[in-house]
Every structure is written in C-alpha cells, then in structure tokens.
C-alpha cells in the first residue's frame, strides 16, 4: 500500500481552505461562466440544426453521426488537438465543450418536437395557425419538457468536462485538482471535487425543478409501470 509522506498534510487542511477563499470564489465563477457559454451556444446551434433536421429528415443521419463521433472522442484528446490549432485559449476549450453538448441537445430537441401529437398540430392548423405560429405556440411549448431534460444532461456533463480543461490551462475548479495532484496535497483535490459535484447537483436539481414546473404531467417515465 502506498505510504504518503511527501507534503501531504492532513486530508482536509481547513486553514488552507480558509486562506484561499478568493481563489475558490474566482474559480467557481469561472466554472459557471465556462458552462453557461458552452450550454448556451450549444443550445443555439442545436436548435438551429434541429429545425433543419425536422424540415429535411434525411439530414438527421449526417448530423447525428458527426455529433455522435464528436461526443465519443475523449475530452483530453479533443482539447489537446484543438490546442495545436488554436492554442491553449478559452476559445479552444469552448469549441470542445460546445461540441460535446450537440449530440444530447439535438437528440432531445428533435425527439421533443417529434413527440408533439399529430392531432394537436392538426387542430392548430385547422384553427388557422401559420406554420411559424404552430412551431412557436404549439410545438415548442409541448416539446419543452424533453428539451429541458436534454439541457439538464448537457449542463451536468459540461460541468464535469470543464474540470478536464484545467489540463490545458483553463482556470476553474479543476485547477484545484491539478494543483493538488502535482503537489501531492489532497485538500485542494477534495475541494475541487466536492465543489464541482455540488455545482453539478445544484444545476441538475434546478433544471429538474424547471422541467417539473413546465410540465408536471411528464413526471412518470413512460412504461415504467408495475
């Protein structure tokens, strides 16, 4: 078994945490910003692509394939490759982070729009709605729960991936982890881990709340009877 001797200190050095509150606040804020930009941009792009896909079905295969492959690439690999092109900058990290949100968001937006019952749409058309009105007043509202579910997954996933971007020099909660690892000092590692998990849980629960608020009827998973 490993015997830790070098520079380890107690597992949780509270005075260290107390002395680094500005770092904690700053990195927490950065982490949130990174996430918001990625999910925000990812959502806008996914929305646009989804609308195209719904209109021209054959596009779905192509779009899903590309998004799928992007999603499957391990994040360190994607970050590193982009670094060789655009350098270790925020842009680089965000390109990768946005890329990872696409598959989840596109799949959910398309599934959500597809899930709108035919008869409701037909009724709207019958009432004289233009195609645009149908989209905005019928399709989207009804698709919202599924879309928000996708946003939930995308957000939590992104929060985890932002930590990895610390490896290419981005300052966020992951920086506590990399610093702690190289100094063999567990307190910052624990700090970074606990805070990023807490952030993810907070985001997940908040969006779940939004999801339930919008569509309380969608609570039970279809088919999970018994």
């Amino acid at each position: 078994m490993a015997v830790a001797v070098v520079g380890q200190g107690p597992l949780v050095d509270w005075s260290w945490i107390g002395g680094h509150t500005d770092d904690i606040v700053a990195r927490l804020l950065h982490h949130v910003i990174f996430t918001l930009i990625a999910v925000g941009l990812g959502f806008v792009i996914s929305l646009a692509l989804s609308l195209l896909v719904v209109r021209w079905r054959w596009l779905y295969g192509v779009v899903a394939s590309i998004a799928g492959i992007l999603y499957t690439i391990p994040s360190l690999a994607l970050f590193a490759v982009l670094v060789t092109i655009t350098g270790p900058t925020v842009t680089t990290a965000e390109i990768a982070l946005v890329g990872y949100t696409l598959l989840i968001l596109i799949r959910n937006i398309v599934a959500g729009l597809d899930g709108v019952p035919r008869d409701v749409r037909e009724a709207a058309v019958g009432m004289g709605f233009s195609p645009r009105q149908v989209l905005f007043k019928v399709d989207f509202p009804l698709a919202l729960p599924v879309i928000v579910a996708g946003l939930r997954v995308a957000t939590v996933t992104t929060i985890g991936l932002v930590t990895v971007s610390a490896l290419i020099g981005m300052d966020n909660l992951g920086t506590f982890i990399t610093d702690g690892l190289s100094r063999f000092f567990m307190t910052p590692v624990l700090l970074g881990a606990v805070l990023s998990i807490a952030l993810a849980v907070l985001a997940d629960v908040s969006l779940l709340g939004v999801q339930r608020l919008i569509a309380p009827w969608s609570r039970r998973p279809a088919g999970a009877a018994r």
């Binding site: 992951g174 063999f184 567990m186 624990l190 990023s196 993810a200």
Partner: peptide, 13 residues
C-alpha cells in the same frame, strides 16, 4: 454523470 473523473483519479492516488 456529475462525478468529475479527474477528481476520482486524483483522490484514489
């Protein structure tokens, strides 16, 4: 999904 893998590895060291 919420567990940062980097942290898990670092903590296990």
């Amino acid at each position: 999904r919420a567990l940062p893998s980097l942290a898990l590895i670092a903590l296990a060291v």
